[in-house]
Write a protein that binds this DNA or RNA. Structure first.
Lengths: 203, 203
DNA sequence: ACGACGGTCACCCAAAAGAGTTACGGGCCC
DNA sequence: GGGCCCGTAACTCTTTTGGGTGACCGTCGT
């Protein structure tokens, strides 16, 4: 009987997650909880094979819940859910023993792939090197050039100035800019800079 | 009654800090806060002799919290906590009036020594010249409106979109934008967003 | 009562940005 | 050898931005 426990304080997110997880092949039961306390209570009576849990929750936070759950049951498999702003929390949760994490913007396919993998392989863990705060979650991978251009933007330089600085034509800078916008999902340079900060790509 | 206030958004780090600080000779009480807002709220009712605060926090950033705390109470003694990557943030916080900083991987002995020193000598400051890299004096004060506009920019919205969102004309948004650029010393919106992140004005 | 400041809006104008498209050479991986 | 990605560059065209300026109305403090 393969069962998964989904925990999120938002009823909407919880329900969406429940439905998504229920479509994963092999999953026979999905239970839900609204907070860390409920997860721990439920765990006493009924252990699931996998727990999906939001990092940020009222009351017992996600990290603290991971700690307690693992001290009660060292074999528990936990995947954290997170939003971009929460990189520190994810790092702590993984340090505390969570197996991996999913960005809340992850596609349904991504979620299903991760859950499938975690269920199939009880030893599965996210490769630790991917947990550097800079490329956590669905962190887009920018090339060195793109990061240089993004940094130029974050210092208030125009495309022409960035070009002079990097010995490139302005047109080339604009090409890099367009590509990095696309990768980051940014609508303009201000947005790109903000996302760069949020992803830890620039400082 | 010597008391210390510890502020970190991560419960794990907060608790570890609390325990470490509690072992410092002379410290009789350690209170905790999870974010900048809580520090400010708590400060109204109950002033501690020393504040240890993370630079990076959700909500009010560490730098902005330092500014507000000191404008409420110029005598407040604040030590910033940081990870290695955050040197600019530390420099800004110290420029804003924090007395010094501690690396998060500082040994417990180092932490205790620094806390002891800060408590013993109310005038203690980290040698300021060591932190000049990003120094630019006083932190800019943006109005609520200006911060709203800056936030809009950080989410990739155009001036017209920000206007619709805030029920303002585009021209008014542009006026706010021009003014906040001036205050921040920004050359364009991307630069303004970057400075907003560096000052802890937005996230 | 006066001035400073903040919020609102408008107009003009030049510069910059961004989207779309094409193109070519160099690595790198199957 | 054929993709695929990266870096480079150019072209056109539309939209947006940013600077300058002026103006009116509140509020707050002196």
């Amino acid at each position: 009987m393969t069962s998964v426990l989904v925990c999120d304080d938002s009823p909407l997110a919880r329900e969406a997650l429940r439905r998504a997880v229920a479509t994963v092949p092999g999953v026979e039961r999905v239970t839900t909880a609204a907070n860390g306390e409920e997860v721990l209570r439920r765990w006493g009576a009924d252990r699931s094979d996998l727990v999906l849990m939001d990092v940020r929750m009222p009351g017992l936070g996600g990290v603290e819940t991971v700690r307690r759950l693992l001290s009660a049951d060292p074999g528990a498999r936990i995947i954290m859910l997170t939003v971009a702003e929460d990189l520190d929390g994810v790092a702590l949760a993984v340090a505390a023993g969570a197996r991996g994490y999913l960005h809340k913007d992850a596609s349904r396919a991504e979620l299903r792939a991760t859950v499938t993998q975690a269920l199939a392989d009880p030893t599965w863990r996210l490769a630790p090197r991917r947990l550097r705060s800079a490329d956590m979650g669905a962190a887009p991978t920018l090339t060195a050039r793109e990061i240089q251009v993004l940094e130029g933007m974050s210092h208030g330089r125009s495309n022409a100035e960035i070009g002079r600085e990097l010995f490139l034509s302005e047109d080339t800078v604009k090409t890099h800019a367009r590509r990095l916008f696309k990768k980051l999902g940014a609508s303009d340079r201000a947005h790109a800079v903000a996302l760069g900060f949020r992803w830890g790509l620039v400082r």
